[in-house]
Design a binder for these strands. Sequence first.
DNA 1: ATTTTATGTCAGCCATATTGACTTATATTG
DNA 2: CAATATAAGTCAATATGGCTGACATAAAAT
Lengths: 166, 166
Amino acid sequence: MADIKSPSAADLAGEELVRQGIELLFFAYRDFTAEPDRILDEYGFGRAHHRVVHFVGRYPHMTVGELLEILRITKQSLNRVLGQLVRQGFIIQHRGLQDRRQRLLELTERGHQLERLLSAPQRARVGAAFKKAGAPAVEGFRKVLLGIIESEEDRRRFEHPPPTRR
Amino acid sequence: MADIKSPSAADLAGEELVRQGIELLFFAYRDFTAEPDRILDEYGFGRAHHRVVHFVGRYPHMTVGELLEILRITKQSLNRVLGQLVRQGFIIQHRGLQDRRQRLLELTERGHQLERLLSAPQRARVGAAFKKAGAPAVEGFRKVLLGIIESEEDRRRFEHPPPTRR
DNA sequence: ATTTTATGTCAGCCATATTGACTTATATTG
DNA sequence: CAATATAAGTCAATATGGCTGACATAAAAT
C-alpha cells in the first residue's frame, strides 16, 4: 500500500509544519528587532549594543568572558561595542573580588534607562502576543524554543523564574 | 492593601515571563542560524543568501519586489546577493508574462540542492523540538509567533497549509 | 506622450563581524 | 618560587552586508 519511496502524508504534514516553523521564526525575529533597531540608530548604536545592554541588565556582575560565550562573538568585536557603552556611561566595570582579572559588568542608571527604552517595544509586542495567545500557548512557545536551544547551560537560564532586579 | 505605585505580583510575573520570552527568542534564533551559517561559509555566502534561497524556494516565481518587501532590505543590498546566486546558477530569472518588467525568480536544481543542504540542520532542530514538545505546544508556538509578526499580509502566509512543492 | 513602476547599477559609507599577533595583570600549578 | 595558564585589552587588516544617493532602462499605466 504505502509507497516505500515517497514520504508518508504525516511526514509531509510534519515537514510542512516544520518549514512553517522556520519561516515563523524569521518573520517574528525580523519584526521583533525592527523597533529597537530604529531607536539604536538615534544613538549611533547597533543591534550588538542592544544585546550587551540586555544581558548586562539581566545578569548583573556578568564577566566579559560570560558575555562572549552568550553572544558567540570574538572579544575584539565585543570590545568595540562594550568600550563605547562604558565610555558613554551606560555600563560600569569593576574588578572581581575573588578573581581580580575579571571585569564585572553592570548597567549604570543611564544604562538601565537605555535598556528600558530599547526593550519597551519588544516587551509590548511580546506581551501583547502572549496575552492574545493565552497561557497554554505561551507554555508551548517556551517548550518549543527551549527545544531549539542547543546548550543545557543556556536552557537552564529559563528553569527558575529568573532574578528579579531593579 | 495593594501598593498603588509598585506593579502587582501578576504584572511582575507577566513582565518576567515576557522578558524570558524575549531572551528565548534570542537564544533560539542564535542556535537556529548557527549551523546553516557554517555551511554558507564554505560557499563564501552569508545569511542573506540563505534567506533568498529559502524564500525563492518556498514561493517560486516570486518577484524581486516581493522579496524586497519580505527581507526589508534595499534593492542594492539584495542585488549583490541575488546577482551572485544567479551568476553561480542557483537561481534563474525569467520575465513576467503579464508584466514583462518583472523578473520572476526560481531555484535551479542546484539551488534546490543548496536549499535542502542549508535547511537540513534547521529542519532537524525544529523538527526535534516540535516532536519533543508535542502538538499542543507547537500550536502555542505558532500562535505566539503569529502574534509577534507585524503585518497581516505576512501572517496570512501561515493560514493555509502552504504550497506543497517539488 | 508623459509619468510611474520594476529592476538594475555605480559609488561610497558604516557597523559588525572575522583572524592573527601581542600585552598586561592575575591566578594556578609544578 | 618559577613557569604556565587565564581574563581582558589592543592593534591591524579584512570581509560582509547593510545603508544612501544618483542615475539608467524597459515596460506599464495614465
